[in-house]
Structures are given as structure tokens and as C-alpha cells.
């Protein structure tokens, strides 16, 4: 295998995983922008998405139905979480709210463990497992699905924020809460929407990677951390930054594992984070 085709293989792997990181990072960004909270339960949304979809699929539901239903259910969990645990706390400090998200993450993980047990489960691939070759690298159909769905989610989000009233209202309350309230936007309702939206995105991410990487009750923590990492690298609070950070992290991590040392693969990711923070503390596309 030539070095050239190796590089292609690493980059393709990196792009697929990077897409997932980017989706999770987007989830962080949406909640952070509207509420200022870093939602440590973001990874759990990803886990729930995958687990619920697998459960539904094993009951014989068509894959598409199972996936859609799973996204809806996870969105409901996100809504419920905001209503029950975040919303009632008027005027609590941000750090208190962050601890609540940590509590929620532990709680959701525990519930998932009770419902689904401790073993990993797998969703069937969307269209078979027959690999095909591009530029000397091999790639699974599922990788294309991941990339395609990731990009469409991003496009839909862009359209949502640019062209719908709700999206514009969310952007407005992210930009300036007081001003948004003055023009009649219910900022607190926007917080609810942001939780629902990022739960949905998390669920999508969880569903599309399940066929490749499996789902289990504790898969959320590391994915959540990497997504958070990606959000910071790109610049916390910036959506294009989250996408860029996600893909960058995925590709560099994969190249690092390939050419440097796979023992320190996770360390590579966090070293990138540290380097970015020291050189450009606000992230690559962060607002000054």
C-alpha cells in the first residue's frame, strides 16, 4: 500500500468521524449561544439516539421509521430536560446549570444502562457492507451515508437559522438577549428550542454512526468530549467554527494515529486543543 493511498484512507476516515464530531459540536454551540450553558449531557443525546433506534429496529420497524421515531423521542427528552431541570431555575449561575447538565448526563447514562444493559448493540448498515475503492482507499457505503446526512443536516440548519422566523429569533437572542426581549422575542422559549434542536442533532449523529461504531450506554462521554473539543477549536459559539473544528479534529486525529502513534491518538486530539488555545485562545473562527 503506497503512502499516497494511506493518506487518502486516513483522510476519508477522518472526514467521516469528523462529521460526527462536527454534529456534536453544533449541538454544543446552539445551546451555548442561546443560554451560555455548556451542556455536558450532549453526548448522552447521541447515545440515546443510537440506542433507541436499535431497539426500535429490532422490533421489526423499517430502518427509516425507527430512525425518525428515535430522533423525535430524543428531541422530547431534550425538551423535557430543559423544562424540568433548566427552566425552573431563574437567575441561577451558569456553573450551577452546568452541574445540572452533568447530573442529567449521569442520570441518562444510568437509565440507559438499566434499560439496555451494558453490552454494545449495532444498527444494521443502511445499504449493505460491500466496500468500494476510491483512489486506492476503501470505503463503506455507510461512510457515504454519514457524510451525506451530516452535510444535509448542516444545510438544513443553515436554512433554518437564515430563513425561518424561529431561527432568526434564536439567532437574535443569541446575539443580544436584552435587545431580543425588547423586540418581543421570548428568550426563555428560545432556550427550550435550542435544547430540542441540539437533542435532535445529537440523535441523528448517534443513529448514523451506530452501524459503524456500535452503540452502548456509555458511548456518549468520549464522543461528547471530542465534540466539545471540536467546538472550542473552531471557536465556542460559532457554527461554522464548530463544523470546521469537527472536520479538522477528525482528520488530524486520523492522520496522527496513522503517522505518529495510535497509542496517543486521543492525546493528539487534546494536544490540538491545547495548541489552538495557546496560539489562538478564541478558537479558529471564534468571535473576538
Amino acid at each position: 500500500m503506497t503512502t499516497y493511498s494511506q493518506v487518502v484512507q486516513y483522510v476519508i476516515t477522518g472526514i467521516t468521524i469528523g462529521g460526527i464530531y462536527a454534529l456534536i459540536a453544533l449541538g454544543f454551540t446552539i445551546i451555548y449561544n442561546t443560554t451560555g450553558i455548556i451542556n455536558f449531557a450532549q453526548g448522552e443525546f447521541v447515545m440515546l439516539g443510537g440506542m433507541i433506534a436499535v431497539s426500535l429496529a429490532t422490533t421489526g420497524l423499517p430502518l427509516l421509521c425507527a430512525a425518525l421515531l428515535s430522533v423525535l423521542l430524543v428531541t422530547a427528552v431534550g425538551l423535557l430536560f430543559e423544562r424540568l431541570a433548566i427552566h425552573p431555575l431563574k437567575g441561577a449561575s451558569i456553573i450551577t446549570l452546568i452541574i445540572i447538565t452533568i447530573g442529567a448526563s449521569i442520570f441518562l447514562k444510568g437509565v440507559a444502562m438499566l434499560i439496555w444493559g451494558k453490552d454494545a448493540v449495532r444498527l444494521p448498515s443502511f445499504s449493505g457492507d460491500k466496500p468500494f475503492h476510491i483512489l486506492g482507499a476503501t470505503i463503506l457505503p455507510q461512510h457515504l451515508w454519514i457524510l451525506g446526512i451530516t452535510l444535509s443536516v448542516m444545510l438544513l440548519l443553515h436554512l433554518f437559522f437564515e430563513y425561518t422566523i424561529l431561527g432568526k429569533a434564536m439567532r437574535a437572542s443569541a446575539a443580544n438577549r436584552l435587545a431580543a426581549t425588547l423586540v418581543g422575542i421570548n428568550v426563555r422559549k428560545m432556550a427550550m428550542c435550542s435544547f430540542a434542536l441540539s437533542a435532535a442533532i445529537g440523535a441523528v449523529a448517534g443513529i448514523i454512526i451506530s452501524p459503524v461504531t456500535f452503540s452502548s450506554y456509555d458511548v456518549g462521554t468520549m464522543l461528547g468530549l471530542k465534540g466539545f473539543c471540536a467546538a472550542i477549536i473552531g471557536g465556542l459559539g460559532s457554527s461554522p467554527g464548530a463544523i470546521l473544528g469537527g472536520f479538522l479534529l477528525g482528520i488530524l486525529e486520523s492522520l496522527g494515529a496513522g503517522f505518529l502513534s495510535s497509542s496517543y491518538k486521543d492525546a493528539t486530539a487534546f494536544c490540538i486543543l491545547l495548541t489552538v488555545l495557546f496560539l489562538r485562545p478564541r478558537g479558529i473562527l471564534g468571535r473576538p
Partner: peptide, 15 residues
């Protein structure tokens, strides 16, 4: 059930 209760208690205390 311990981690479920632990997570829940954490949330309740903070709320």
C-alpha cells in the same frame, strides 16, 4: 440503581 439515584440527587440538590 445507584448511578441513576446519584445523578438524580445531584440534579435535585442543584435545582
Amino acid at each position: 440503581y445507584d448511578i441513576v439515584i446519584y445523578g438524580l440527587l445531584l440534579m435535585v440538590v442543584m435545582i
